[in-house]
Every structure is written in C-alpha cells, then in structure tokens.
Design a protein around this nucleic acid. Structure first.
Lengths: 217, 217
DNA sequence: GCCAGTCTTGATCGAACGGTCAAGGGGCGG
DNA sequence: CCGCCCCTTGACCGTTCGATCAAGACTGGC
C-alpha cells in the first residue's frame, strides 16, 4: 500500500453484474467511504465494512478481491467530484460573483459529502501515498490554471495583489475545515453545517471575510 | 479505544527512572507522535514505533504497558502546547497587532511541530473519540472567552462586525492547513513552510487577507 | 563488591485480520 | 424444467499484532 499505484486507473474486472450485484457494490462503496474516512486504510477492518453493508466478509471479497482494490475504488469514485468545483472558477465573470459561488459550492460539498472530504484529508495527512502522483500532475496543473485566472483579475485591478495560490489554499482550508473538523466545531457550537442556519451563517461570514480581503475598497 | 477515557489525566505509574530510562521514554514519545500522526491509532503498529525508537517491541512495552497508554501520553504531551497560542490573544492591545502575532504564532507551530498538528487533525477527523470531552469543556470555554474579546473589538469599532467564532475557525483552518496538508502543498509548490521564503510569503499573505477582511477601511 | 531496582531480551500466546477454497443457493434465459 | 452463471456461505489458513512471562544484564548506591 505504500506503493503509488502508478496510473490510478482501476478498471478492475468489469464483469457483468446482476441488479443485486450492482446494488451491493454501491452499498459497499458508500459504507467503505464512510469507514475509510474515519479510520484510514490501515485502521479499517474489511469485515467492519462488510457488516456495515450488510454482508459477510467473504461476500465482500467476492466483489473486491483485495482490501486495496476497494480503497482505490472508493478513492477513484470520489476524486472527480473533488476536483470538479475548482474547474468552474472562470475568468469570464467578475471575481466577486465567481468566488462567492465557489465558496458556496465548496461549503455545500462539505455539508453533503463530509466523508469524502475527510477521506482526502486522511490521504494527504498520511503523505498522499496513493494520490501523490495525481496531485503532482492533475491538481498542480489545475491550480496553475486557476492561479493564472486570479492573476488576470489582479492585473485588471479587479482585486488587490495577493498570492493567487495562497488565496486558493485559504478557501480550500476554510471550507473543508467545516467537514474535516466537524467534530471539533460540534464540540464548541453544538451544531454543524447540516444546520441550515449555521450553514448560511458560515457561508456569509467566510464569503464576507474573503471578499473584503481581496476586493479593492 | 472507542472509550472517552474520561478525565484525560494519565499520571501512569510514575516509577523512578534512570537517565537511560527517561531518554528512552522521550525518544519513544517523539517517534510515537510522528507515527501516530501519519497512521492514526489503529493504523500504527507498536513495533513500528519501537524500531523507530531503536528498541524492541517488548522493551517499549516495558515503558508503556498498553498501546493506548502510549497514545494517551503522546496526546497529553501535545495538548497543552496546542491550546496555548490562543491564550495569548489578549483584548489589551489593538486587534491588528494581536491577530498578526497570533497568525505568526500558529504558522510557526505548523512549521516547527507539523506532526502535532496532524495528530490532532487525525483525532478530530475520527470524531475526537479521546479528545472529545476536552474539546467540549476546555476548548469550548477558551473559544468562548476569546470570542468575547473579539466581540469587544467589534463593539469598540476597531474591527468590522464578523462572527467571532468563524473568525477563529478561519485562522485555525488556514494556519493548520499548511501543516496538515503539507503533502498537497508540496505536490503543487514543491516546497513547504520549512522554506523560509515560503514561510514569510505565507505569513504575509494570510495576515494581509485576514486583516483586510476585518479592519475598517 | 554486593545488592536492589532498573532495564533488556527472546520465547510464546491468543485474538484479530486479510485472504483462499470448495460447496451450495438462486434466479433468469432458453 | 434445465442449466448456466452470479451470488452467498462457512470452514479454514498463514500472518500479524498486542500483550505476557520468565530470565538475565546492567547500573548506581552503600
């Protein structure tokens, strides 16, 4: 598992599957995401996922022959969803609207798919043993492109001079924080993003903070 | 280990110890922090820590009879250091200086003790099974007090109206991001906070962003 | 130089875990 | 109603892991 798995594609034995089979696979992936996201790869037991999905360990291993296969499948399924929001950060419109929309999108993801956020957090905290190559290529390129977009806003005087990459990191960290550290926020506030009031409160405050930080006065 | 361990004190058998003994304990704790911080509690093997510390598994178990004892000891040793920076956020001086100092302090911690940051991140991501009670009492109180401080700045017109707690979360998330997600940043930037230039760059940008966000124009 | 208390080691145990195997159940098309 | 293929099961295997135990080595104080 310390191996980087190279290409990160895993078209693993796409055998034909009955409806029951497909439903099982999806249920396994759902539960596996949840459990991998809280215990990490090494920390989760395969039969833990199995019983959470309502089947035996052997039965699970019928669908995913190795633990690593399951982990990769989960990671794969989450990856695209994770990279997508940044794609839509477009140079076209005005930065205010674009960034406001991006923050809302990221916060929505933190509310609706907190496990996915935590899974990536775990991966990266562990040094990104699997996702490393993807980050160095796909993500790095994407960030470079978006940094250019932000730089163009700066050059046009639409926002103040600020390191584009740090701006991206800031938005990432703040928005994901509400998913990854939900337990901490729950301990302090007694609520999390699933509370509509708290969600709007968070969205407004973060947006205001960032926009005031970069908009010319 | 799913137990909350109640009081979080662990004056475990403070037996008398020779110099060699104390050195071993410290080396064990150092290595354990590093390894727990990347693999989590369930994910780390006890002999992994032992060999990293240069002794046998049995020998390590002489100092910490159970794996959980070691984990608690590591957590305990890191906790105070982690809560401390926020303490110094004082209402006395002007908010600009106070927050600037706080951000620098947190970023310094992320640079000098990234493993400690990651360990807490892992704990919280897992739902804070151990630290939960501490967060609900100690941390919640501390945050409440500091939120009052920030509110007093708002009332005095020194900073704009902003949810004090969200402001704290923002600063936490951004500064800790550079420790917890160092692998991701390294994949994109090719460097991290240990690079003095990058450190100052980060410090300046984050400070500027936050201060512009809350200072009256 | 002896002794008590501290440290270190290797052998070993039981449980947990990832994974295999062989056998049987069940549904769907012909 | 038959046979094929997908699914499900339980028994089992080898390894790993946390933890124990008994026995010996080292060290500092007297």
């Amino acid at each position: 598992m310390d191996e980087a798995a190279g290409t990160m594609d895993m078209r693993g034995a796409e055998t034909s599957r009955s409806r029951a089979g497909q439903e099982n696979v999806e249920r396994i992936l759902d539960r596996a995401l949840e459990i991998f996201a809280t215990f990490g790869f090494r920390g989760t037991r395969i039969d833990q996922i199995a019983s959470a999905a309502g089947l035996s360990k052997t039965n699970l291993l019928y669908y995913f022959r190795r633990k690593e296969d399951l982990y990769l499948a989960v990671l794969q399924r989450t990856l695209d969803m994770w990279l997508e929001p940044l794609q839509s950060l477009d140079a076209g419109g005005d930065p205010e609207r674009a960034i406001e929309a991006y923050i809302r999108q990221k916060l929505s993801a933190s509310r609706d798919a907190p496990a996915a956020s935590r899974l990536f957090a775990l991966e990266v905290i562990q040094g990104a043993p699997i996702l490393g190559p993807v980050l160095e290529t796909q993500l790095a390129d994407l960030v470079d492109r978006k940094a250019t977009t932000i730089q163009s806003w700066i050059d046009a005087g639409k926002i103040v001079a600020v390191s584009p990459r740090h701006l991206i990191y800031t938005i990432w960290s703040v928005t994901q924080h509400y998913a990854d550290f939900a337990a901490q926020i729950r301990a302090i506030e007694g609520r999390d993003l699933s509370d509509p009031v708290f969600f709007e409160d968070t969205c407004r405050t973060v947006t205001q903070l960032v926009l005031r930080g970069i908009l010319p006065r």
